[in-house]
């Protein structure tokens, strides 16, 4: 179980990384923390001809909190945010979801943007990005562009990123006043990919629920706030609309049931957390 051969480029600057990417295109993969990519390399599921290591790019190592968004650079490891004592204040949903991402031993290496780029439909960080309406900042030698989370994720492990582009950063809105956030997940074991993960954002009468692990990408739905009429019906419609599938670990029906029940619990928790 060893990787096939590849060249390795340690980019020292954004320009170097983008130049290499422009040259190699679809045959290259960006190596950040490597926690999603290395298993695929070891199993020879992925066979890039070159890896472009971006962890040496200083400008991508920053977490920028100025303004009303939290901008997280491509080389920011998950642990850096997890250990930030102010994170829960700046963005409580991200703070609640991070401990569910793999294990401490993978969060120590894995990056936030890497998980977004991988676009696993059960992963927590893409779910958070969608739930918060965050943005993905793509950059190539040609151009920079910003996509909404909804437009970035196009399907199972598929994104709108083009071959010569990389995620330079993601941006999440900071916590808003009178808004409650909550995250809940059911997995077979702690640290496993979610069977169903729910992220709720409740603000006044507006309630949003994002669900991961069910459809081919995180799905977002606007629902009546807990206490308002029609929540159960709306959750039921949402559950059915996701077209859940059976797999080894759970049935479609179980997933729908969790969307209804866990979804409600998560929304209720978000209401309670509304400061």
């Amino acid at each position: 179980m060893k990787p096939a051969r590849f060249d390795y480029v340690a980019a020292a600057s954004a320009e170097e990384a983008l130049e290499a990417l422009a040259q190699e295109g679809g045959n290259a993969r960006i190596l950040a923390g490597g926690q999603s990519l290395l298993p695929m390399l070891n199993m020879r599921l992925a066979r890039p001809t070159v890896l472009i290591d971006i962890m040496g790019v200083d400008e991508w190592r920053a977490v920028d909190r100025d303004g009303d968004v939290l901008r997280i650079g491509a080389a920011v490891r998950q642990v850096a945010l997890e250990q930030d004592p102010d994170l829960a204040r700046f963005q409580p949903l991200l703070a609640a979801a991070l401990p569910w991402v793999g294990h401490p031993q993978t969060r120590s290496r894995g990056t936030v943007c890497g998980s977004i780029a991988h676009a696993d439909p059960s992963a927590e960080l893409p779910l958070v990005l969608v739930a918060l309406g965050g943005t993905v900042h793509l950059r190539s030698r040609r151009r920079k562009r910003v996509l909404s989370a909804q437009n970035f994720f196009t399907g199972m492990m598929s994104t709108a990123r083009e071959d010569d582009e990389l995620i330079e950063a993601i941006a999440l809105p900071k916590a808003r006043t009178r808004t409650g956030y909550a995250f809940r997940e059911v997995a077979r074991r702690h640290g496993d990919f979610a069977i169903v993960a729910c992220a709720a954002v409740v603000n006044g009468v507006r309630a949003q629920l994002a669900v991961g692990g069910v459809a081919d990408r995180p799905a977002l739905c606007e629902l009546p706030a807990p206490g308002a009429a029609g929540l159960d019906e709306a959750l039921d419609d949402f559950a059915w609309s996701l077209e859940a599938r059976d797999d080894l670990h759970a049935t479609a029906r179980y997933r729908r049931e969790l969307v209804r029940r866990l979804g409600r619990t998560t929304l209720e928790e978000a209401v309670r957390c509304r400061a």
Partner: peptide, 19 residues
């Protein structure tokens, strides 16, 4: 038992596949 979806949400046959 699970209730059938309300009429307005169509269900693709694929969703009924066995595990």
């Amino acid at each position: 038992p699970e209730k059938a979806p309300r009429g307005k949400t169509p269900v693709r046959p694929a969703a009924k596949e066995a595990a």
